[in-house]
Design a protein around this nucleic acid. Structure first.
Length: 832
RNA sequence: GCGAAAGUGGCGGAACGGCAGACGCGCGGGCCUUAGGAGCCCGUGGGGCAACCCGUGGGGGUUCGAAUCCCCCCUUUCGCACCA
């Protein structure tokens, strides 16, 4: 019966400790003991004001969901914590704070679903998270915890908004927005996935036009892009941001009309101007009304209505079949002087460039499709080698290698790149164009027509317009509403609470109303790193002296899923605050590393997929230390991987071996005699090699290979005779990875202070090298033998030894080699 | 379509242009045991009795030497996607 029960538990089970080892490493007891000690001794506290070598080790704070922490979160925090502990052991004063990002639609939707008010639900979720995080053994100084939902925090989020508002960086714009009928709120473009809501994969997003608050992040597009080159960031993250900002260089050219209108188009290819056979305006373009002729008006209006009804997203990513209608009007091509038709089509987007294009069907695929469908003329203006002005164009040729202009009087024969500059200059002189740079980045819409967020601190007055809430009146507290459900009126639930929103205007005192929208969650997290060192301060958002001392963040570790939103918004806010003179630096994260993602069976963990793995059972079964190390051993930290629990026992065996070595040594060798290793030879050399490897690998976040190096060393120790001198440095190397375990070993080795007070061991380069090397002997590049030689053997000796090998002689047949390649201490290659 | 990254044993993964498969799991054999489910030892890419031969997605190339560098192709993951 008992045996049967055990077999059922087999995949996760590990036999009772007493059975495994007489010495018995009991992770639960060790972890309980050290967590209590850390608390009591304040081991993880840092003296912010007195620190001599400040190191701000930042990790992305969690968004506490109801399910609690999953192994993906834990993976992120463990990797960052190892790095922080490593830096501390290397002598830095490491500040490793953590907090909770708990406003927003996720939380609110969940609260609605379970029928509990977010103000009650969120604290519970946070409590669960905090408990799990503490159990993981993170070196967090919880005195500086922040919660974005705390009025003491969001008071300053509102303050940040006001600083931007006063600087003219927060503006109100009427804009078409993505509307999710299920969330009943607007979504950022980034929250729309292929036309569907990121939270409701079955709900198509629609278009609505609302007055919204925007941060004009586009004003910072150039520095946001340009600084990237100087930042020490994971390559992938940098690339994602650069693509998102999407700089493109081109020109704005003016196409005049007989009616005197000037249509400005944006193009990256002014060199193809002679091939522009028609002009296309976005359906929303302001000139459409003026241009359209009486005969065409009905068709044009019908088309515009249809375009307006289609949601933004379908219009962008829906079927690519081109549609459009002729306006009846014509414009003059400034190069050819030809009169060309003006169309409207929804493939031209109002929000990019000027909302108007010159169509060059010969050299642009979209224009080609359109021209083909509507039988508009297609002209070749670029020809490559072997082509000429008359070579047919069965399809668009956007990139013609070594192309030169044709059908372009005055420019024929010129290489296209040169012509691009020449034509732009020519039109500039005529006042019909100028070179411009465009960005794909859009302004950041921060309005949310929802409840669970910080109210935007603005009061609308009929006489004064939008007025900032005076700073001394902050925070604008989010009132506790029993009915906080969104409705499809397009306004926030706060707008149903008249007692709350009716206030006098701070400027003129007349009756006015509060802004009832709340701000985007990304605003909460766009400045939280500034708050941490001052988290205990009620008088300022961030203390100038502490900020100067601790910021910018020394190292930021987080997920690439935030590469374009959170990281860009945080950079923008930082630049804005710098320009306002509130901080002295313009980049918050000079060094950023993206960790990989932990997936389950190849899919991202999510509740909807039902593949979320929670750490609790693993903590119970194996202990936090084993689980931490196991996650890190799964593969390269910066690549992530698929979670499976087969193999976790390998880590446990490793810790058991170390435990046994510590017991054995402590019983045998006298305390206080760390000094000379008993084996001054190979084991000591192995130790120094291990220190070298673990140091380099930990620094590089190559945790999997650092663990492998420690395993190799422990395997070697097991075969030899352990001593304090051989074990104490190992314990310190292990401390970032298995902190509770290392503390216990450290204590058992006779220390009364925390292992975190120890110094990271140094290695002697002379000892870290192997003195007896195995030289590979190749004949014609094929390995034929290996010879053991002392390190530093000269070429002549090595070659002689190599040739003496029978396996080598056989292939050289005794003839002298034609050529010898010698790589010191590595290989000899004889070419015969 | 564009951009980025990656394809290595049964599995996760190692490998400054220089011994492919470190380390771990799993598996096989042995020791110890009443027992093995713990521990310890040995073995473990494929083929061959052997000498050896073949092996890092596929095909070319550079090199004395390529998993690694270059070109083409295939596959996977991620991001963007009518951005003029």
């Amino acid at each position: 019966m008992y045996a049967f029960v055990r077999r059922l538990r087999a995949p996760l089970s590990y036999p009772p400790m007493s059975d495994a080892h007489p010495t018995g490493y009991d992770p639960q007891a060790v972890e309980r003991k050290w967590q209590a000690r850390w608390e009591e001794r304040g081991t993880h506290r840092v003296d912010l004001a007195g620190a001599r070598r400040p190191y701000f080790n930042l990790m992305m704070f969690p968004y506490p969901s109801a399910e609690g922490l999953h192994v993906g979160n834990l993976y992120a925090f463990t990797g960052a914590d190892i790095f922080g502990r490593f830096q501390r052991l290397r002598g830095h004063d490491v500040f490793e704070p953590l907090g909770f990002d708990a406003f927003g639609i996720h939380s609110e939707n969940h609260a609605l679903k379970v029928g509990l008010h977010p103000a009650e639900l969120i604290p519970r979720n946070i409590a669960t998270f905090r408990r799990q995080l503490r159990r993981a053994g993170l070196m967090v100084d919880w005195r500086y915890e922040v919660q974005t939902t705390d009025p003491a925090y969001y008071k300053w989020t509102q303050w940040v908004f006001l600083q931007l508002f006063k600087a003219g960086l927060a503006v109100r714009k009427r804009a078409a927005v993505n509307w999710c009928p299920a969330c009943k709120t607007v979504l950022a473009n980034e929250q729309v996935i292929n036309g569907f809501c990121e939270r409701h994969p079955d709900t198509k997003v629609e278009q609505r036009t609302l007055d919204q608050w925007f941060f004009t992040i586009t004003k910072y597009a150039a520095p946001l892009l340009d600084h990237l080159a100087q930042l020490d960031w994971s390559h992938s993250t940098r690339t994602l941001q650069a693509n998102w900002i999407g700089r493109s260089e081109g020109a704005e050219l003016v196409f005049g009309t007989p009616g005197g209108q000037r249509i400005t188009v944006f193009t990256t290819r002014p060199d193809t101007l002679f091939g522009a056979t028609y002009v296309v305006l976005a359906p929303e373009h302001p000139l459409v009304d003026e241009l359209v002729t009486a005969e065409c008006r009905a068709d044009v209006n019908a088309y515009r209505r249809r375009a307006a009804a289609t949601d933004l997203v379908t219009r962008r990513v829906g079927e690519k079949e081109k549609t459009g209608v002729f306006t009846g009007a014509y414009a003059r091509n400034p190069a050819t002087g030809a009169s060309i038709p003006i169309w409207i089509a929804d493939y031209v987007l109002m929000e990019y460039g000027t909302g108007a294009i010159m169509a060059v069907p010969g050299h642009d695929e979209r224009d080609f499709d359109f021209a083909t469908k509507f039988r508009l003329p297609i002209v070749r203006v670029i020809a490559g080698p072997g082509q000429d002005a008359a070579t047919p164009l069965p399809q668009a040729e956007p990139d013609v290698p070594d192309g030169r202009l044709v059908n372009s009087p005055g420019y024929d024969g010129r290489p296209w790149l040169e012509a691009k500059r020449a034509i732009t200059r020519w039109l500039e002189e005529k006042g019909l164009g100028k070179g411009v740079v465009n960005y794909r980045l859009h302004d950041w819409c921060i309005s949310r027509q929802r409840y669970w967020g910080p109210p935007i601190p603005i009061i609308h007055c009929d006489a004064c317009g939008p007025v900032a809430v005076p700073e001394q009146d902050l925070p604008v507290v989010l009132p506790k509403l029993d009915d906080y459900r969104p409705d499809d009126s397009g306004v926030s639930p706060l707008a149903r609470n008249e007692a709350w929103y009716r206030v006098p205007c701070p400027k003129c005192g007349k009756p006015a109303r509060r802004e009832t929208d709340v701000s985007d969650t990304f605003l909460d997290s766009a400045w939280y790193f500034l708050r941490y060192p001052s988290a205990d301060r009620a008088d300022v958002a961030f203390d100038p002296a502490l900020t100067a001392k601790w910021l910018p963040v020394t190292t930021y570790i987080g997920g690439n899923e935030h590469a374009v939103l959170h990281l860009m918004y945080a950079r923008f806010i930082t630049m804005a605050l710098k320009d306002l003179g509130l901080i002295a630096f313009d980049e918050p994260f000079p060094r950023f590393r993206a960790h990989g993602m932990i997936v389950k069976d190849g899919a991202k963990m999510s509740k909807s997929r039902g593949n979320v793995v929670v750490p609790d059972a693993y903590f119970d079964q194996w202990g936090a230390d084993t689980f931490r190390m196991y996650l890190m051993f799964l593969g390269p930290y910066q690549e992530g991987g698929d979670f499976r629990d087969a193999g976790i026992v390998g880590i446990r065996r490793f810790l058991d071996k170390v435990w046994a070595l510590v017991q054995k040594t402590d019983a045998k060798t006298p305390r206080g005699q760390g000094g000379q290793a008993e084996d001054g030879g190979e084991l000591l050399r192995h130790l120094h090699r291990t220190i070298q490897r673990v140091t380099a690998d930990t620094e590089a976040l190559a945790y999997n290979t650092a663990i492998a190096a420690m395993m190799e060393y422990v395997n070697a120790l097991q075969k030899g005779e352990p001593s304090r001198a051989l074990l104490e440095p190992l314990t310190v190397l292990l401390a970032p990875y298995a902190p509770h375990f290392a503390e216990e070993c450290w204590e058992r080795l006779g220390h009364s202070t925390s292992v975190m007070e120890a110094a990271w061991p140094a290695f002697d380069p002379a000892l870290a090298v192997v003195e007896q090397v195995e030289l590979v002997v190749q004949v014609n590049g094929k390995v034929r033998a290996r010879v053991a030689m002392p390190r530093g053997t000269a070429e002549a000796d090595a070659v002689a030894a190599a040739r003496a090998e029978p396996a080598v002689a056989k292939f050289t047949e005794g003839k002298p080699p034609r050529k010898v390649i010698f790589v010191p201490d590595r290989l000899v290659n004889l070419v015969v």
